[in-house]
Design a protein around this nucleic acid. Structure first.
Lengths: 214, 214, 214, 214
DNA sequence: AATGAATGAGAGTTCATTCAT
DNA sequence: TATGAATGAACTCTCATTCAT
């Protein structure tokens, strides 16, 4: 049985994480102060230091779990019985939904600059996670285009697909609407976007392959 | 007639703007201090306040002209004797190059939230500029797809095109490489991206038009 | 009869005092945190406040007993059957060892300013203790020089002896070595110091006595 | 010609140094805050950072020049036409006077712990200075005892002499009296102290030399 | 008796900005 | 016009201390 104290403690920690997530997301890591977070979390700024070593630890602890979750969701979709196109679409929608839900974090995950240059480890973890995510997308694109496509072309087309996906996310990240509103309103647009990309990529992939650098 | 003093004054102002632009672009607005700017501009930090109300005024004054420039460049390209596809491609490349050159500004232009909530007017100016830009892109897309396309579809396809364009920009904005390096390395990728989009969009545009909300 | 609870309570208090003493001694009062003490004492930092009003109370309660102990030790030595010189030497060594063992305390005892200005009473206690100690030293010096020496000269020579003793202590107080290391290494040096002083003082004390103010 | 501004600037810097010196001396480096210094210096605490990189820089800049001055004074005395005993006495008095004048600094110079463990350079400089000072004293002692004395014995006797000197300083450092008052009152005591030491040491130095470790 | 949770005060430091020349 | 001097606000983070259990 958990004591009342432990419950309160967990609650406080959660509220700090929630506050930090929201603020980092909306204003950016640097622009958010510990006191801002504390205020939003409804506690003193010193309380934060009971639960997190420093501001950066907050950021780190905040960014990893959702990314892990998305990676797992991707794996789940990859393993499902769906047509390749539907798989890729589902993964794309999942990514969009994730990023709009965790608006705070997506920048951390996708923007290289998030970490300081001097500290390697936290950046590396995030970088690894991002690369994994990209790898999943690549698998899905491969499923749509077939195995004969050389790696180099696969990479190129995945990247192009990723551009559009990222563009969608970046466009709506700063919107004031809720995820539900956005998804409700825009799913057809997103579907259309995926289809446009698949048609274009397939048409290209079938033609002769000229060399293109990355 | 302008006096020697006025000339020198103009020169100082210009050097401050140049310094601020470069530094904002390379390190980001927040990470740059007034003293950094002053050092780079070769004047005292107090001098900056003679020409600019505050740091934000610097940013603002810095962001408008390049956007104007880009708009004019777009107009120029729209007016040139080129195939519709080449026009759209040229405009896309110009946009990418512009955004990577003015990295710190592009957020101001493309992210709705960038400005403080309290100040309306500067945001409006920027919003107008952004809408103008989107309008130019729409014209170019229209050129590629023909005039029979209903507005609603045109908007959808322009938006999809814009997603990819924005994705490209957002992807490389946080890179540490210089514009020159990036453009040198990635132009083929960008070209391929535009082609994929055009193929996909055209294929869609020719088919029957289902309704899609925005 | 004492209950088991009371025993445990005493034990906790003792372990807190022991921890504080060790840490104050090795790192200095200011550099030690309540949490450091609690950790070393094996209890929560809040527990300390059950037994001691605050950090300063800890220091105070910690400083008196050793001083008392030293005074008693001095008395013991004064009462022993030893040559006057050996008595003085033994007392000197005891003082040195005491001060190096209780490094953080010695300042409290020997530096007038150590206590806050506002609190009179604890300072007085310490002052009394210090004066007592000086008195013991004076007795021992008197034993070496004979009873005919006027008080004024006795005071002067005791003071001179004290200078050297204090100098030894001040020199090695800030060393990082342990008491054992220091004493093991330096006892011959200390002995030689005492002998030099006694020779010098005796030679002076036998000569004609000029007046010297304090 | 120096401008009025430059004068004011110099004045401010000086007042900061004076304030810091006084406070470091009376309360100890750690117990003094930048705001304390600023208050005493009559300026804002941020002003300090215009003139000194950080708190430690203040300490460093504060400690070196007086020490240099003392070293030079010692050299001057060593070069003068005086009997060896008078030389040593003069140097001793000079040291005492210096330390009582710069009460703030003497701890920095004589207490090894002053600097943090991690930073080598500032500590080294001070250590070098201290060693130089000790070397001067050694020369003077050598002058009194003659050249035949083995180095090891010379070191021992210098150390003993130093103990007493340091003891004098440490004793009166925490006094509230001014240097002038103290010197006026105590010079005879100091003289007597030096004489006692010289007699004792000489007597020892002429006898057979037993080995003594450091 | 004992403790985990929480906090206010305050540390060093930075920065945009104003003042006086 | 231009600048060095100076500052208040605010930042991250620490610590002795109190509160609720």
């Amino acid at each position: 049985m958990v004591s009342k104290q432990e419950l309160r403690s967990e609650e406080t920690k959660r509220s700090i994480l929630a506050a930090a997530g929201e603020l980092f997301g909306s204003r950016g890591y640097d622009a958010v102060t510990m006191r801002d977070i504390a205020k939003q979390a409804g506690c003193s700024h010193t309380t934060i230091y009971i639960y997190f070593k420093d501001k950066e630890a907050l950021l780190h602890q905040l960014s990893m779990p959702p990314v892990q979750y998305l990676i797992e969701k991707m794996d789940g979709l990859l393993g499902q019985e769906l047509s390749p196109d539907d798989k890729l679409k589902a993964m794309s929608l999942a990514t969009i939904e994730f990023c709009l839900t965790n608006r705070s974090m997506y920048g951390l995950v996708f923007n290289t600059k998030a970490g300081r240059v001097d500290e390697q480890s936290p950046k590396l973890e995030i970088n690894q996670a991002r690369n994994k995510l990209f790898g999943k997308l690549e698998s899905a694109v491969k499923g749509c285009l077939g195995n004969e496509l050389p790696d180099e072309r696969l990479l190129l087309y995945t990247r192009i697909y990723f551009f559009a996906l990222y563009g969608v996310i970046a466009t709506y990240t700063s919107s004031e609407e809720s995820v539900e509103q956005l998804m409700g309103r825009l799913i057809p647009t997103f579907q259309e976007t995926f289809e446009v990309l698949l048609i274009g990529i397939r048409s290209k992939a079938e033609g002769p392959w000229a060399r293109t650098e990355d």
